[in-house]
Design a protein around this nucleic acid. Sequence first.
RNA 1: GGCGCGUUCGUCUAGAGGCUUAGGACGCCGCCCUCUCAAGGCGGAGAUCACCGGUUCGAAUCCGGUACGCGCUACCA
Length: 485
Amino acid sequence: MISEHPRVRFAPSPTGYLHVGGLRTALYNYLFAKNNNGKFILRIEDTDRNRYVEGAVENLIAALKWVGLEYEEGPDKGGNYGPYMQSERLDIYKKYAQELVAQKKAYYCFCTPERLSQVRDEQQKQGLQPKYDKHCLSLSAEEIEEKLKNNVPYVIRMNIEPDMKIAFEDVIRGSVEFDSNIIDDQVLIKSDGYPTYHLANVVDDHLMKITHVIRGEEWLSSTPKHVLLYDFFGWEKPVFAHLPLLLNPDRSKLSKRQGDVAVEDYRAKGYLKDALVNFVALLGWNAGDDKEYYELEEMVEKFSLERVNKSGAVFNIEKLNWLNAEHLRKKPDEELLSMLKDELEVSKYKGKIFSDKYLLLVIEAMKERVSFVKEYIEKSPYFFEAPEEYDQDVIKKRWKEGSAENILKLAEKFSALQDPVKEDYETALRQTAEELGIGTGKLIHPVRLAVSGVGGGPGLFDILYIIGKDETISRLKRAAEKIKI
RNA sequence: GGCGCGUUCGUCUAGAGGCUUAGGACGCCGCCCUCUCAAGGCGGAGAUCACCGGUUCGAAUCCGGUACGCGCUACCA
């Protein structure tokens, strides 16, 4: 069933941004293509002129690019089966629609929106399935000719025969069957000359030699229409795979109201593309083992449509956060450095100069303690400026009667050190503690507070080494003065 | 309403008739490590596998029904 070199496509309509659900659809298409040595194609389904959004296509492309899902053919890349924007393929759709009309598999319909809604109301009142009543199917050739000549607005509709069973195989769901009686005589060409999704999608998938249609579950119910169209044209059908939906915490379809849905939102919040992709991939797929941390390449190796789940998955931000931390920790320090520098540029420390060497030390110290790049700054501001305030709870817990004198004593000790390294601070501190006749803890904690303003963080001597002797001494003195019990 | 799809710890999931006292991960809690906070290690709580019935020596796994959820039911995709 799976051809040797499959061709799959991600076919979003440009609504303004890339939805995370769309990201997952794109990802599964990509993974499937790469896993099978096939091609991944981007096609823009911009057939609804009312929904046109300025810059949406560029946005979509930028998001895909950021995330690293590279396609071989697409609107900005070209390819042998273009154009890849449906709005540039209008003539093609028209031609195929007319072919169907000639074969009586589709027909012109001149009904006004008013009549349509009247019919619908009537049917609903009688408790019937709202469906077009094939009113225009009985028009004579002359009547049609006449109306066309007089520029009466029209649409072209599919002529669906009643009492048929339309069945197809879905890789994920198995065999699915529909009754043709519930299917409306679907509009193929709208009165503005644009095709509807159904026509454009089938025509393009055929012309672009798409072998596998991998899309969201919301399309499952329209698939019989597509199957019928393939049959009308006498075309070979692609393999269908309908993906489960992504859900809000309350199990409704993932929506903007309940949080961020745009890939760019997550990017702006500081999520790594690797983590987002990893996370989204696991929402509905797994390799059958316990592995949860993935790089793109490994997913490509292991992916298969057969292992995609049937049921919807809640988009659970906590797991995403964990994965982000996991991915962040695996990044080489050099890469972290460049990300941290970018982050500093948009922080309140913009303009302040820190050497790469310094920043690398900060990274080493904080690496295990952050989940996001920006946390290097938020969780350890003391590496970028002296603390202005001291955590009250920590003062209460760690700052005792003689603490101020003790750290001043220590400052004195420190000032005698020559180019101290981590161990030198430690030795000096332990010595001082001994001289003062107190436990090292009694000194360590107040020093930590004095130097960082908080109670947690990397090992104290690492902090001291990083900020340096002069800064350490100055912070100790300042704290001895400022911290009051 | 009709049609379709789905239903295993709070969440993501493993599970393809006996290997299951249903496994892992996130989150939560505890212990260890430790100058603190993390990370890491160990452990714990958490699922009558939606429900009912059937098939079978045996069912989370197969079949039927019910409930619930979601999707579609447009000249939107």
